[in-house]
Design a protein around this nucleic acid. Structure first.
Lengths: 143, 143
DNA sequence: AATTATTGCTTGCATATCGCCAGCAAAATT
DNA sequence: AATTTTGCTGGCGATATGCAAGCAATAATT
């Protein structure tokens, strides 16, 4: 379960790690929807099979994108949280959403389109910072 | 060979299209390395099996990310070129490279690190614009 | 004009990954 | 003590990937 880098290209090296059907979806669920337990992920809109979820979470942990912890009071429920390395993927996700907004609506008209999307359209950088800060606050309030 | 959107999320909808092992690699080869013919792709550092390449190019064409043309003077060699929709993925790729530069060097020290990376580190937006313009110029000079 | 090389594929088959489903142990709740 | 919840594991079929061979059409070479 480790990475094989195809070459020394910085573009594709990222894809060697994160260019997978599920990894960025999981990161997005953590970052945007606040999902943090195994259960949370299985209940998401984009439902992942549990065996794959296990494998992907383990991989994300190995890569240092996610850390696995527990709540201070609960010995069973594991918490999966983004590290700085994981949080740094925010900009990638924001660019993906920006692209969807602009280029996918013709073939997928029901993509959500609310206030948040308005902010994203107007200022990607601020949008990314807001999301990152919200996650960081959540982290500090957890412990 | 068409897309199934898992939900209405703008983040994951992009991944439904482009969150695949190869698609962004191909786009990057076109954008950064100027690859444009079937042969070009088969000779890349990140070599794709020809059957998969065929399938992926067809998909990118169906998605309107790439157009398939021919050189005015050559009836055999096909040209695969990025559309505006494809060019708009530049920012995503740039963010991926930025992330690699910052977070992947510890596990993959041989990632290229030259002048271009310096520019990328200093100003992502300019870097993206430079790449996009270079590609646009190439397009106009082609026809 | 005939021969050879190149390009852009397709096909067959092996292997790897994905995805559904059932089940299960440990902890937590009732 | 019994039940539920959480976090997983394993089996098995379906889909995707990867390697190799082959092949027709065009282009280049002789």
């Amino acid at each position: 379960m480790d990475v094989k880098f195809k070459c020394n290209c910085p573009f594709t090296s990222a894809l060697d790690v994160v260019g997978d059907k599920w990894l960025l979806v999981i990161v997005k669920q953590m970052l945007i929807e606040g999902k943090e337990t195994f259960k949370d992920f299985t209940e998401a809109d984009e439902a992942i099979a549990t065996n794959i979820l296990t494998a992907k979470l383990k991989f994300l942990e190995e890569m240092g994108i996610v850390i696995k912890t527990q709540r201070p009071d609960n010995k069973k429920t594991n918490l999966y949280l983004l590290t700085e390395k994981g949080l740094a993927l925010t900009s990638v996700l924001v660019e993906l959403a920006f692209w969807s907004d602009k280029h996918l609506r013709d073939i997928h008209p029901t993509i959500v389109n609310g206030e948040e999307m308005e902010l994203l359209r107007n200022d990607k950088t601020t949008f990314a910072r807001v999301i990152e800060n919200r996650y960081r606050e959540k982290l500090t309030s957890l412990f």
